[in-house]
């Protein structure tokens, strides 16, 4: 059913865990449908320096989460935004058709984490501006 690469990433997932002081966190999916992914990113000078994940889901959901964290590390935010679900699935030597939605979820989790990073950066900037005015 699954490729060897999927099984490898399922059995030995890379970057499992939580980044406590993450710069961006994205949670996507729905437990009712059987998949929830949470992706944490750390960003330094516009480059994703670290990524971790936690996933509730099937073998493909865990493998795609693991793969996407591997793919984004060292990439700039702009480059990371170019990563498509197809690229994640291809990097795993393909997914069964019924499991392609897992790669979509992985792409969405990444985008959600980046959105969160931008939102946090913006609110930080606003706070900083606010502080400046008071000085």
């Amino acid at each position: 059913m699954y490729s060897e690469k999927v099984m490898d990433h399922f059995q030995n997932p890379r970057n499992v865990g939580e980044i406590v002081d993450a710069d961006g966190v994205g949670t996507v999916g729905n437990p009712v449908c059987g998949d929830v992914m949470r992706l944490y990113i750390k960003v330094k000078d516009g480059v994703i320096s670290d990524a971790k994940f936690k996933t509730f889901g099937c073998g493909a959901a865990i493998a795609t989460s693991s793969m996407v964290t591997e793919m984004v590390k060292g990439k700039s935010i702009e480059e990371a935004l170019q990563i498509s679900n197809k690229a994640v699935a291809e990097a795993l030597d393909g997914l069964p058709p019924i499991k392609m939605h897992c790669s979509v979820l992985a792409e969405e989790a990444l985008k959600a984490a980046i959105d969160d990073y931008f939102a946090k950066a913006k609110s930080r900037m606003n706070t900083n501006e606010g502080t400046n005015k008071h000085e």
Binding site: P13, V16, E18, T27, P31, V36, M37, R38, K54, T55, F56, I62
Partner: peptide
């Protein structure tokens, strides 16, 4: 469970 956001 240790890998699951729902469990967390």
């Amino acid at each position: 469970r240790s890998m699951s956001p729902l469990w967390e």
